[in-house]
Design a protein around this nucleic acid. Structure first.
Lengths: 144, 144
DNA sequence: CCAATTTCAGAGTAACTGATATCG
DNA sequence: CCGATATCAGTTACTCTGAAATTG
């Protein structure tokens, strides 16, 4: 019986992610952006108007964790928030011009990193591989 | 132009990993094992005799980080270390019986988790998908 | 002297739990 | 009263950088 098996796939994802995080930190440090700050900006640019609770759900973190990120981004005027027209408590966030400018600096470097890391995966295989990651995500959400 | 693209794959891996880590923590908490402690035990069981420096390289962390993990495992008598016969400074680690017993409790639960998360990926596709993750790992190592 | 290993000390990132207040 | 949201406060997990000692 191969007792090493259980560690394999999940362990490998952790390993890869740790390496990616290190590279991202290296790229983002000069811009004084943390990884969650960058990803939150990037998500908000594509989908403006998300609330803190929305962002937390999408990012697989607790609202308290996301709140810290979004509060810091607002403090630095990289995002701004406005009240939801119908539900007074909800604050909808969107990226400011300053935030967009910073994103513009970071994104190409991160795109280069991604391209370099994925170079061995044939183009034709990428959507399927991404699909599998999305399948895992869906299963993870079911466990919550 | 699709400005959201750069975030996709790397972001997705981070998302998946965050979900996995949360589930692993839930499984390991009652055993009072952290994730790095568990993975280090699991690696050492398959490859006894690795040094702290070896383990750090394999795990994509600095030797200082791994040292903290291995020292704690030794403190709890889940691993023990002995001097390398030829190179006096090097300490070779191996899992104790107590460590093996704890691993025996954790592994089946983690195997179940892995099986549940991978259920949508056809068996025939898994080796290829794991191969792609290994390709990414290799590229990450080149960047160090 | 040099390269690799171990390890002590301190710092920082990023997530967590718990609790409180507000809104619909 | 309830469910969702926002947020304050404190804590924990994990990794990092820097520096020192040891060994071959």
């Amino acid at each position: 019986m191969d007792r090493s098996r259980p560690v394999r796939f999940l362990y490998l994802i952790g390993l890869v992610d740790r390496g990616i995080q290190r590279q991202l930190r290296r790229i983002l440090a000069p811009l004084e952006l943390s990884i969650p700050e960058y990803t939150t900006l990037a998500v908000l640019e594509v989908e403006p108007g998300l609330s803190n609770a929305d962002l937390a759900r999408r990012s697989m973190v607790r609202p308290q964790s996301m709140n810290e990120v979004i509060a810091r981004l607002e403090e630095r005027a990289l995002v701004e928030r406005s009240q939801h027209p119908a539900h007074g408590r909800i604050l909808m966030a969107e990226v400011t011009d300053a935030g967009r400018a910073l994103l513009g600096q970071a994104m190409p470097r991160i795109a280069d990193l991604e391209a370099a890391l994925l170079v061995d995966i044939p183009d034709a295989e990428r959507p399927k591989t991404r699909g599998y990651l999305l399948d895992i995500m869906r299963r993870l959400r079911e466990l919550e």
